[in-house]
């Protein structure tokens, strides 16, 4: 019997799922992703998390609980760093331990460290630790790692064509070219808005209250940090006097700064979750840079547990009025 590994549809899922999935599948493991966020997942997450955790962590807890009883392993690598001299949020590091202590009868956790902080450390070595659980042949693990990296590259390419993560994953799963054409880069003649925020906030339809879908319905094109190649994002972030060591914060700042100087962008929306530590700094930095230039309509949205959508709708509508007003 093939073992099944559960992958929560949360946190860095939208960044790395194709890599994880391809790697595990190449080792002969079947994978199971938790369903899209719904009320039950969120409620379970809230109930089982410590109070001071942020919404994305609480949500990830809900996704882990959703997988309990359905899988043999839960894939929760302890992602310390994904780029040299940079870190991922500290709450992510502690997450496997939070799960182990909060969820009774949790399946075996795959919580190997992924730490690329040191310029000489190799992702391959980190993944080997995980691969060894399912395969004793190091050559096969190496091959799995290579195909996994390939699939991450093709995934990022799809995102850069402004295809949404879930659609991009679907394309990769069925390798359908026809399907891809349905998601053209710009699907409306309306203004283009840059939506800046962590992937686990803006792409989760439930907690973002489907902000992307709403904007599209209002006739707006949406671009994000993921639409840009990594070099451009990093280039944008060099505006800071000192390198930011939060990878995710750097993504937000770099893309915001880039879009700020792009004449095709009519407005910037910044989404952050309530109680996010790094965002308290990076969000503020972005806001200040934008206010300094004062050339572009800007909106900051804070997400938390509320289910009432009226607040988000009112702000989005007012923001778009502002965008259209400015356009004349």
């Amino acid at each position: 019997m093939k073992p099944t590994v559960g992958i929560p549809r949360a946190l860095l899922y939208y960044e790395f799922f194709p890599l994880w999935n391809t790697f595990l599948k190449s080792l002969g493991v079947s994978t199971c992703v938790s369903p899209c966020t719904n009320k039950r997942i969120l409620a379970n997450g809230l109930k089982n998390s410590v109070d001071e955790a942020c919404l994305p962590i609480k949500l990830a807890m809900g996704h882990v609980i959703e997988l309990c009883g359905k899988v043999d392993y839960i894939f929760l690598p302890r992602i310390v760093s994904v780029a040299p001299r940079e870190y991922i949020c500290p709450k992510f590091l502690g997450f496997p331990d939070m799960v182990r202590n909060a969820v009774p009868n949790v399946p075996k956790l795959i919580d190997a460290n992924i730490d690329l902080y040191h310029p000489r450390s190799k992702a391959q070595k980190n993944l080997h630790e995980i691969g060894k659980l399912f395969c004793s042949n190091p050559m096969r693990i190496n091959r799995a790692h290579k195909t996994a990296c390939q699939s991450l590259i093709s995934y990022k390419k799809l995102l850069q064509e402004n295809i949404l993560p879930e659609a991009a994953m679907e394309i990769m799963a069925c390798k359908e070219i026809v399907f891809k054409n349905k998601h053209s880069k710009y699907d409306s003649n309306g203004p283009t808005i840059a939506l800046i925020g962590h992937s686990y906030n803006i792409y989760d339809q439930h907690i973002s209250m489907d902000i992307i879908g709403r904007l599209k319905k209002l006739g707006v094109n949406v671009v994000t940090a993921e639409t840009l190649p990594e070099e451009i994002v990093r280039q944008g972030a060099t505006i800071l006097p000192k390198k930011l060591f939060w990878t995710l914060g750097q993504q937000s700042i770099g893309s915001a700064i880039h879009y700020l100087s792009d004449p095709a962008i009519s407005g910037i929306i910044l989404v952050s979750s309530f109680g996010c530590g790094p965002d308290a700094l990076t969000g503020e930095l972005i806001e200040r840079y934008i206010h300094r230039t004062r050339t572009i309509p800007f909106l900051k949205l804070t997400l938390d547990e509320h289910t009432g959508e009226a607040g988000v709708i009112t702000r989005l509508e007012a923001f778009l009025d502002m965008v259209y007003w400015k356009a004349g």
Binding site: F274, H291, R294, P297, F298, K300, T302, D304, H306, G311, T314, R315, A318, D321, M322, W325, K326
Partner: peptide, 10 residues
């Protein structure tokens, strides 16, 4: 014209 706005958050 409106150039910026904010509403109370949480």
């Amino acid at each position: 014209v409106v150039s910026d706005f904010a509403m109370n958050t949480v």
